[in-house]
Design a binder for these strands. Structure first.
Length: 301
DNA sequence: GCAAGCCTGACC
DNA sequence: GGTCAGGCTTGC
């Protein structure tokens, strides 16, 4: 699952393999992965040259300029769950679920977008539109200051796990690194951000940065689908302490790792290293009742 | 049937 | 505004 370390690895790969390349053409095989009109997307990008590749959180942005050096435009990429961007020889047979091809001019290579579950999106946009999307995201997780981090926790009563996953607060964490950071900090996924002790909040701040830095250094984590630009998997899997290790012994204390669902996401934690303190154990009766009843669909009724 | 990121919409 | 469930999708 591409989270910040995986997206950053892809960005670095694009810098190496796609920078200053001109797109000879843009072919879309599955318009569903394009935000907006696929024909417009293809027409606007074809013939342009990749000038830079930036990232905020899990969002990638390729800056492209036309031949006349007119206003640059942007190719925004969200990989979703199973999205893969690769740079491969044009003659390489198309893998199943390849939705977009962008062959380079004067090079035998091309960029391909493949995405079996099609949760990812490619979007053609202006600088203003890109800025809008970036502005809607909280600070990139490795960049967030302690002041912003602690301020955003104030008064928050929902689960810390959901808080870490909220891209408007800080951007880049997904399920893997949220679980890993909470383990690193010794905090239970249901703890309340606004009620964390100062020491715990500080541990979490450091844990987020540490876990992400390590994962970036190891080119990310590959579960099923993630690969980098060259098709290589990441190397962080052996360093995972809790994620997808339900029932296995904690690497710190030996207790069996547990799995619970928090905010609809599976959450893995060590019951001994991440004790259930600093949060209300009693749910309010109203909320408990709401959770018991499946909500009715609003459409179609 | 579950996993995931992101969006929408319901509820307080 | 905060919070969270549900839906999308398909390979395992």
């Amino acid at each position: 699952m591409p989270e910040l370390p995986e997206v950053e690895t892809v960005r670095q790969g694009l810098l190496k393999r796609a920078l200053r390349r001109r797109l000879a053409a843009v072919e879309v095989y599955h318009p569903q992965v394009i935000a907006g009109q696929a024909s417009e997307f293809a027409q606007n990008l074809a013939g342009r040259r990749i000038e830079s590749v930036t990232r905020k959180g899990k969002v990638l942005a390729l800056e492209l300029v036309g031949k006349n050096g007119a206003t640059p435009c942007y190719l925004m990429v969200r990989l979703g769950m199973t999205g893969q961007l690769t740079v491969v020889p044009q003659e390489m047979p198309l893998e199943p679920h390849t939705h977009v091809r962008m062959p380079f001019e004067k090079s035998g290579a091309e960029i391909r977008y493949r995405d079996p579950r099609r949760f990812g999106r490619l979007r053609y946009c202006s600088r203003e539109q890109l800025d809008q999307v970036f502005a809607s995201l909280g600070p990139d997780a490795p960049e967030i200051t302690p002041e912003d981090f602690f301020r955003s926790m104030k008064g928050r009563r929902g689960a810390i796990k959901g808080w870490l996953l909220n891209q408007r607060i800080l951007s880049g964490l997904g399920n893997i690194y949220a679980d890993e950071a909470l383990f690193e900090a010794g905090i239970h996924p249901l703890a309340q951000p606004g009620r964390l002790a100062q020491t715990a909040a500080r541990r979490l701040y450091r844990a987020v940065k540490k876990v992400l830095a390590r994962a970036v250094a190891l080119q990310g984590t590959s579960f099923r689908d993630y690969i980098d630009i060259e098709g290589q998997p990441g190397n962080f899997q052996p360093r995972l302490k809790v994620y997808q290790r339900t029932g296995e012994p904690c690497r710190r204390c030996g207790r069996a790792i547990r799995r619970i669902v928090v905010c609809g996401r599976s959450s893995h934690f060590c019951p001994k290293c991440q004790p259930r303190t600093h949060h209300l154990t009693a749910a309010s009766p109203v909320r408990a009742a709401r959770q018991r009843l499946p909500r009715r669909k609003s459409a179609g009724l």
